[in-house]
């Protein structure tokens, strides 16, 4: 995971303490220790950090063979639990495979698709997959299935199939852009 400069690793302790007050039950479990251990940068008052931050997440790894999708979910939960907001989750590269509703994870492994869907519903998150990356990996919604005359659509309805412009627009609109490489 790599944060934008001035990213989460630099947040002061005061931020977590402030924002967790309203949500003690959630943040007590999920507050990311990496954030709460930091002190403020020299010469910077806590006041300028005391606001809700908007995050966008880029997720690049294959859900079946990399840790990326799982790490992103944990980060997303910690972000929300700390009182911040997630503007959009953009799945790119092999990450688009998370939207494939045909995946059958082993019973003793976590069902990442199910967990993402539940988390996104609970917090009204926008889950998006890149259309170009999805098409070449056989991840098609009904529109694309019809356009390319393929056998079956397999995108879980909670995911929007969008263009790369949505990735850039999110990065422009957010305070922090975090990427989870494959």
């Amino acid at each position: 995971m790599i944060a934008s400069p001035g990213g989460v690793a630099e947040w002061p302790k005061a931020l977590v303490l402030k924002t967790s007050e309203g949500r003690p039950s959630e943040s007590s479990n999920l507050s990311p220790s990496a954030i709460s251990m930091q002190s403020s940068p020299p010469g910077v008052s806590y006041d300028c950090y005391r606001r809700i931050m908007m995050f966008c997440l880029n997720v690049h790894g294959d859900p079946a063979s990399s840790q990326s999708v799982h790490s992103a979910l944990q980060f997303a939960k910690a972000t929300v639990a700390s009182g911040h907001e997630i503007y959009r989750v953009f799945f790119y590269h092999d990450g688009v495979r998370i939207a494939d509703c045909n995946q059958v994870p082993p019973q003793d492994e976590s069902n990442l698709l199910q967990q993402w869907i539940e988390f996104a519903e609970e917090h009204s998150l926008e889950l998006t997959v890149c259309i170009a990356a999805a098409l070449k990996r056989g991840v098609l919604n009904e529109d694309e299935r019809a356009r390319y005359e393929r056998v079956a659509a397999n995108v879980y309805p909670a995911f929007s199939v969008v263009g790369l412009g949505q990735q850039i627009e999110a990065a422009i609109s957010c305070d922090r852009t975090i990427t989870f490489p494959g």
């Binding site: 400069p5 590269h93 852009t177 990427t179």
Partner: peptide, 11 residues
């Protein structure tokens, strides 16, 4: 260079 950016995207 990195410190001067608003957004860093990586592959």
């Amino acid at each position: 260079l990195i410190a001067a950016q608003n957004v860093v995207m990586n592959d």
